[in-house]
């Protein structure tokens, strides 16, 4: 009995220890809904967490300094979850992809596109192929018919550059997903994973964001003997910042405008600005409006990703 009791005390001590350690080490800001409203920012998952953490702690600080309100970053690892969180008000300002941004605005009437990166106005995807597949670079979209009967992988199911636009250009040129080997494409889950599954030979062709492809090539993470670009898509608009309609109401008149100018003001001349822009892979943020994404909405409706 004595041994038993001693063990119970030990367990209780251990648990208390864990809890105290947890309380001391966690530095997150307190629960939401306290006196001053907190601006919750988020992003669709597109980069590794180590990078996201650095990116968003710098960005939160920058926005917090410029707007003089507390800013909190909420990590979300799933595209539709980010859209829903934006609709329900769990996130106030979100870095969306083309498609998810349109989905979010359609579900949140009054939401406003604030800004995009300089590169987003003319964004492209690339189709890459495994060397062993025998697929050669093509000069024109109509040669996409070569992809019929091949194993093809997209990235995430909601990705604009890793699924929507590549599928749109395929469909424009008479290649439907049912024409692919197995009657359906694979979904690797991310741009980096698309490179991995095509490079390994599991899939013969893949489609992904050209910016991610370039940075992988630059970092030496692509084996040029095994995988290469066969086609670059025409340009389209992609990633952008979207704000909830009720920001002015909650933070004071003109707040949405202030957020927009804070984003546009981030410049590579300050060390923090330089970090942020480098991590976003951009030279600067430029203004954008809802109508810029009308084409994406039309494509989304055509392919059934917008209902």
């Amino acid at each position: 009995m004595l041994v038993r009791e001693r063990r119970a005390v030990l367990v209780a001590c251990l648990l208390t220890g864990i809890t105290i350690a947890a309380t001391v080490t966690s530095c997150g800001s307190g629960p939401t809904g306290t006196e001053s409203p907190v601006l919750h920012i988020g992003a669709i998952p597109d980069q590794n967490p180590e990078k996201l953490n650095r990116l968003y702690s710098s960005l939160s600080d920058e926005l917090s300094d410029q707007l003089t309100v507390p800013v909190q970053y909420v990590p979300v690892s799933n595209y539709p979850a980010a859209v829903s969180a934006f609709r329900t008000g769990s996130l106030d300002l979100v870095w969306f992809g083309g498609l998810t941004g349109v989905q979010a605005r359609l579900q949140t009437p009054g939401a406003k596109v604030l800004a995009q990166r300089d590169i987003d106005a003319k964004f492209t995807s690339v189709f890459i192929a495994n060397g062993a597949s025998g697929l050669r670079p093509i000069s024109n979209g109509d040669q996409l018919t070569n992809l019929k009967g091949r194993r093809l992988s997209f990235g995430s199911e909601s990705s604009t550059s890793g699924r929507l636009m590549p599928q749109y250009f395929m469909s424009q040129n008479g290649v439907e997903t049912a024409d692919l080997a197995g009657g359906a494409p694979g979904f690797s889950g991310s741009h980096d994973a698309t490179i991995a599954v095509v490079q390994s030979g599991a899939y013969e062709v893949g489609a992904l964001n050209e910016q991610v492809w370039r940075s992988n090539v630059k970092d030496g993470r692509v084996d040029p003997n095994k995988v290469s670009v066969i086609w670059r898509t025409p340009t389209y608009v992609d990633y952008h910042w979207v704000a909830r309609p009720d920001l002015d109401e909650r933070f004071g008149n003109g707040f949405t405008k202030k957020v927009q100018s804070a984003l546009l003001k981030i410049s590579p001349t300050t060390p923090r600005g330089e970090t942020i822009l480098e991590l976003f892979g951009a030279a600067q943020f430029i203004p954008a409006q809802n109508s810029d994404y009308d084409k994406i909405e039309a494509v989304g409706r055509q392919l059934g990703k917008i209902r």
Binding site: P45, Q47, N48, P49, E50, K51, L52, P75, V76, S77, N78, G189, S190, D192, A193, A196
Partner: peptide, 13 residues
């Protein structure tokens, strides 16, 4: 933790 693991997996880190 799942969110962090998934983000690392997505970028193959």
């Amino acid at each position: 933790l799942g969110t962090d693991l998934m983000l690392s997996l997505q970028s193959l880190q």
